[in-house]
């Protein structure tokens, strides 16, 4: 039988689980304050189209272009849609408050979700490339998304939403340096780095 030398050396170094650093002990940094108004605006904008459609139907019914029954239903529909849009906006605001992130020495942590919550931890050594993306609305609020790609298909992508431009730039730069360091060393482990965590900002 053959052996896999590096892994076997590594295997001897396994520590007791309770002596390992616990990701739960990390104090996470909330996303940029501008993310909340952005999320609420985006949630409301998404409902403008159906609301507009109902308004048009209402106007058309008033003008006699469509059956009057439809016109009678329009206020009910408009009210229902408005309530849904408002709930959605409140939900987006709560969701924005729950979103948080942190950089540790060797990984990136991102927490999101209100009812269905998710914490994702990506080791720097596993990130293949990083990119920042921002839509027109995000740019208006001075926000950007940071996308980290790892192996494992689409399930292996992490999107950190709600970073301000400067933080996203610094994190991206930091991650790229860590990826390069890892490759230069031929190993994932490298010396301690100054983490550009939001807390330093």
């Amino acid at each position: 039988m053959t052996s896999r030398a590096p892994e076997e050396t590594f295997a001897n170094a396994v520590l007791a689980a309770d002596s390992l650093p616990d990701f739960r002990a990390v104090v996470l940094q909330p996303v940029a304050p501008a993310y909340r108004p952005y999320a609420v605006t985006a949630a409301v904008l998404g409902w403008l189209v159906p609301l507009g459609a109902v308004l048009i139907a209402w106007a058309a019914a008033a003008a006699g272009l469509v059956p009057a029954a439809l016109g009678a239903l329009a206020p009910v529909g408009f009210g229902a849609l408005l309530v849904i849009a408002m709930i959605n906006a409140v939900f987006a605001a709560v969701d924005a408050r729950r979103r948080a992130w942190a950089l540790r020495e060797h990984d990136l942590i991102y927490r999101s979700g209100v009812l269905w919550r998710r914490s994702v931890i990506v080791p720097f050594a596993r990130i293949q490339h990083v990119e920042t993306v921002s839509g027109p609305l995000e740019r208006r609020f001075g926000l950007t998304r940071l996308k980290c790609f790892t192996a494992g298909g689409s399930g292996g992508d992490l999107t950190v939403a709600g970073l301000d431009l400067e933080t996203a730039r610094r994190v991206r730069q930091f991650l790229l340096e860590r990826i390069r360091d890892g490759e230069d060393d031929g190993a994932a482990v490298s010396g301690p780095h100054e983490a550009p965590n939001g807390a330093d900002d």
């Binding site: 590096p6 520590l15 689980a17 390992l20 650093p21 990701f23 060797h106 192996a151 031929g186 482990v189």
Partner: peptide
């Protein structure tokens, strides 16, 4: 959490390159 911590420790200390 214990499993996650162990997995992260293993991934972050392994002398293995990205795939």
């Amino acid at each position: 959490a214990a499993l996650a911590n162990q997995a992260l420790f293993a991934a972050e200390t392994a002398r293995r390159h990205r795939v």
